[in-house]
Simulated scan of single mutants.
Amino acid sequence: MSTLSWLVLLLAFLIGVASLALAGMPPVTPAQVRRPRRALRLRVALFVAGVAVTLTVPAVASARALAAGPAPSLPLTLLVSVLPWLLLLGLGAAIAWLASANEPLALSFRQQLADLVPMATRRDVHRGFTVVHFDDERPIACAAPGRPREILVSSAMSTLLDERQLTAVIAHEYAHLRGRHAAILRCAELTTRLAPARWRGRAFIGPVRLLIELAADDAAARQIGPAELANALARVGRATGEVALVYRAECIARRRWPVARRRRAPRAFALQTATR
C-alpha cells in the first residue's frame, strides 16, 4: 500500500478521534443555547461518526495491506490478519467493562423508581406515556424510559406549580422520553470513563448533560409556552436552591419564541384514563 494511502487512513483515523472529542469536550456556547436541539443532534452525529471511523479505519488498513502485494511477509500477514480480531475483542472487553462499571448507577436509578412507585396516588394514562403521581415532600419530576413510559411527579411538585406550569414540566420530561435522552446520557457517561482523567467530570459530560436539559426545555416551551416553563423552573429552583434551574429559566426568558397560536401539545398528551 502506498505512502499516500497510509496517510489518508491515518488522517481519517485522526478525524474520527477529533469527532469523538468534539462530541463531548467543547463547552456550550450562546449559539448552542439558542438552538439546543440542533446542537445536541450535531454532537450525537459527531459521536456516531467518530466511533464508526475509528473502528473502520484499522480494519480497512489491514485489508488493504493484505491486498497490496502478491506475497506479503509472514509477520505482516499475521499482523493484518489478527489485528481486526484483536480490535473487536478489545472493543467487546471495553464495552463489557464499561457496562459493569456503570451498572451500579443504573441499579440505583431503578431502585429509586421502585421505591417511588408503591407510593403512587394516581395514574394518568395518556396516549404516549403515563403520569404517576406520588406523595413526597420534595418537588420531583422525572422521566422513566421503558415500557410503559412513565413520568413521575411528586405531590410537592403538583402543589408548588399551577396547572399550566405543571403541564410544561411534564412536557419537558416527555421530551426526554421522545428524544431518548437517557440513552444519549448513558453513552456520554460510558465515554467519560474512557477519557483521560483531566477530561473527565464536568469538562467532558457536563456539556452533553446541559444540552439535553436545554433541548427538553426548548421542546416544552414551544409546545406549552415559554413563560409557563420559565416560571416553573424558577419556582422550583428557588424552592430547592438549584442554581441550574434558575439559569435555564433565564435562558428561556432571553430567547424569542413563536407566537401562542403556533403552539400545540403533542397528540401523546391526550388523556385516556385517570385512576386513583
Rank of each mutant, 00 (worst) to 15 (best):
Y247N: 10
L271G: 09
L66A: 11
D218Q: 12
R267I: 04
L210G: 00
G179W: 06
L66N: 01
G241N: 06
L79M: 12
V125Q: 10
L113F: 10
P118L: 10
L166W: 08
E228P: 00
L78M: 11
Q223I: 05
R37F: 10
T130V: 15
A156G: 02
A45R: 10
V48D: 05
L271K: 12
R267A: 13
L210Y: 05
F129Q: 05
T130N: 06
I140L: 14
L177T: 05
L211Q: 01
R267S: 10
H172S: 03
L91K: 00
A216S: 13
A67F: 08
S154R: 05
R267G: 15
E213S: 04
S62D: 07
A67L: 12
I15A: 15
G237K: 07
N231Q: 13
V125F: 00
R37H: 13
G128L: 04
D115N: 12
L74S: 04
I95S: 07
L211W: 06
A197T: 13
P72M: 10
L79Y: 14
R254I: 02
E213T: 05
T275Y: 02
V259N: 02
V57Y: 06
R178S: 14
Q112T: 14
L185P: 00
A195Y: 06
G69S: 13
I151A: 04
A268S: 15
L79K: 01
A39R: 03
E150W: 04
R209N: 10
W199P: 00
A221R: 03
G128F: 03
A65T: 11
R238D: 11
A141L: 06
A244Q: 11
R255G: 04
